[in-house]
């Protein structure tokens, strides 16, 4: 464990908790893409199937349980409890265009052709594009609530910090994983224009609005 990975996990946890609290406190999921949240629930489910079979540390197991629990709770709040506030008119990104290619690629490019490893690879590929429905929704509505932009900033920072973690691990212990690295680079690149808007607008107290 190094500081970048720890900060990355912390940033990821903060993002997940911010979103859950936003929906719960405001009793509304306006501006939130339920489709992205479904993809994140699939990412955690397919990645953490070894939750009970492969014990790494208390930290690892507890974080996995928190991620899975929170992601399913978020999906439930969006499609169950507060579905009246769900913006189904704008949350229309075709997630099958993300699921199918990720699944096909996971079969073609992986470290080991075993069920667990193919599912892990699928979750890595899917996670790299899982935010697209959310970014699509923000572009369609043309703006995002400030709390939603904080959520996106924390979520985008998590994988950026993981890129630094892999840089650190490469130079300190020669470790590298091209599948995770390339997916992580794509994932982070998708946030670039958002990061620019966040830093140039939200941090100056303005609302995040995309140029019309």
């Amino acid at each position: 464990m190094n500081v970048f990975r720890f900060l990355g996990d912390l940033s990821h946890l903060v993002a997940i908790v911010i979103l859950l609290l936003k929906i719960w406190k405001t009793r509304s999921c306006s501006g939130i893409s339920g489709r992205s949240q479904i993809l994140f629930a699939i990412v955690f489910t397919t990645r953490y199937l070894d939750l009970f079979s492969n014990f790494i540390s208390v930290y690892n197991t507890s974080m996995k349980i928190v991620y899975i629990t929170c992601s399913y709770a978020t999906v439930y709040l969006i499609y169950g409890k507060f579905k009246a506030t769900y913006d189904f008119n704008h949350d229309t990104f075709r997630i099958e265009f993300l699921l199918v290619p990720s699944a096909i690629l996971a079969f073609l490019v992986n470290h080991d052709f075993s069920p667990l490893e193919i599912l892990w690879t699928f979750s890595i590929y899917l996670e790299s594009v899982a935010i697209l429905p959310q970014l699509f929704l923000v572009s369609k509505t043309g703006e995002a609530e400030t709390i939603t932009s904080h959520y996106l900033f924390a979520l985008g920072s998590y994988r950026l910090l993981y890129l630094l973690n892999w840089l650190w691990r490469y130079f300190s212990q020669g470790f590298y994983d091209l599948i995770a690295l390339l997916s992580g680079i794509l994932q982070t690149v998708l946030y670039c224009d958002f990061f620019y808007l966040y830093i140039s607008k939200v941090l100056k107290g303005k609302k995040l609005s995309l140029p019309a």
Binding site: R5, H12, D50, N54, N60, K64, H111, D112, W120, N165
Partner: peptide, 10 residues
């Protein structure tokens, strides 16, 4: 390739 890749990251 039969490698036991243990993923220790979240």
């Amino acid at each position: 390739s039969k490698k036991n890749v243990a993923h220790d990251e979240l």
